[in-house]
Amino acid sequence: MAGNIKIRAKNSNGVTTVKSLMSHEMETGLRKDKKTGEPIPAHFIQEVTAKWNDQVVMTALWSGGVSKNPYLSFKFNGGAAGDKIEITWVDNKGESETGTAEIS
């Protein structure tokens, strides 16, 4: 269920672009199991926090409307090669995962 977070971060002309791919089913809670007709319980990422060297650059609040295995890209001013990027998500069941990468 919970996989790893893939992160790519690149600095160009003083702006760092981060691209990340998370592994999560992003179940809205509105779907029904085709065989049993039972609703499939909601299970989706609610909050994603992105840090650059321990400074929060962006916090994303999500619903189940974000696609399965979410892709997220954002940019910030600053950053240099070797700086740490850390992305953490927390889902509605309280599970969480953190991934890190260095800016290239």
Binding site: M58, L72, F74, N77
Partner: peptide, 13 residues
């Protein structure tokens, strides 16, 4: 955050 550039890209349903 204060350093963020107003740019986001994602995929939605």
């Amino acid at each position: 955050g204060e350093n963020a550039v107003p740019f986001v890209s994602t995929r939605i349903k």
